[in-house]
């Protein structure tokens, strides 16, 4: 690992100031992706600004029809929150299947959403649950947030403070879990709202995306058969050492169908 300077932010404003003042600063939340990245020398930030002391950046609350998860809340806290389990059980289940127990104790929702790893789980929830990403500067609609491979709508220096998920009528998240890493080879969130159904996919493309054809089909008929034959074009999907783009496209179809099966059984 290359060396860097380490700072602990005393407040959100302090974090923003330190980030701005650094030559090439990075925020440190749980570190579950950032530290392995640094160990592999895939990044060389000049400064790490640790958000660990910002106690008001942790916790879960229910506000109207939204579940609000503050950015520094670890996956374990989301997975075991009775409030989340009551409001959006699919979100608690998703958080409980990220990585492994030790990773869930440290890894945070803000870090995951800011990083936008193509195989991370939370992006499927951000899109599928019509979430809003709240930063120290503004609110960003989930639909406008993911732009590409590790690329988001966040501007330099912008800090995620919370993610607000809308409570669906019902939702289910299923993933083909990479057996070694736990990352989603493909993950599909199907969520039904009064305004319509959302089908969000992670793991398959350079970033999370929605499958409009499946959403329209499910709005006509919320049955497994409705999505069983909807092909997802594989041209824009990822092929890698784990599987081909064609196989990922196939998995999207299979996992969407199974998610609907779970909701209609």
């Amino acid at each position: 690992m290359h060396n860097f300077d380490y700072h602990r932010a005393a407040s959100l404003a302090d974090a923003a100031a330190k980030l701005k003042g650094a030559e090439d600063g990075k925020l440190l939340a749980g570190g579950m992706t950032l530290l392995p990245t640094l160990k592999n020398r895939l990044a060389q930030p000049s400064d790490l600004i640790d958000l660990a002391d910002l106690g008001d950046m942790r916790g879960v609350s229910i506000e109207g029809d939204e579940v609000v998860i503050r950015a520094m809340t670890p996956h374990f806290a989301v997975a075991t929150s009775l409030e989340v389990a009551a409001a959006i059980p699919a979100l608690a289940a998703l958080a409980g299947n990220i990585g492994d127990p030790a990773v869930r104790h440290r890894g945070t929702i803000g870090g995951s959403v800011a990083n936008s790893d193509p195989a991370a789980d939370y992006p499927a929830a951000v899109l599928g649950l019509d979430a809003t990403v709240v930063t120290n500067e503004r609110s960003i609609r989930g639909d406008d947030y993911f732009l590409g491979l590790f690329e988001t709508a966040l501007r330099p220096g912008e800090i995620i403070t919370s993610v607000r998920f809308k409570k669906p009528k019902r939702a289910h998240y299923l993933k083909f879990r990479h057996p070694a890493s736990g990352y989603a080879v493909v993950g599909v969130m199907v969520a039904q709202f009064a305004a319509g159904t959302r089908v969000a996919v992670t793991g398959a493309g350079p970033c999370a995306f929605r499958v409009k054809a499946m959403e329209e089909a499910l709005d006509r008929s919320f049955t497994p058969a409705a999505v069983a034959d909807i092909a997802v074009p594989h041209a824009d999907l990822m092929g890698d050492i784990h599987c081909s783009a064609e196989y990922r496209a196939h998995l999207v179809k299979v996992y969407a169908r199974r998610a609907v099966e779970a909701l209609t059984a």
């Binding site: 380490y6 579950m32 392995p36 640790d50 030790a102 990773v103």
Partner: peptide, 18 residues
Amino acid sequence: VVHVDGVAVKSCTMLAVQ
């Protein structure tokens, strides 16, 4: 794996300064 404030974490993925 060690315990930090009572919970299991991977000490190879945490900085000593943290």
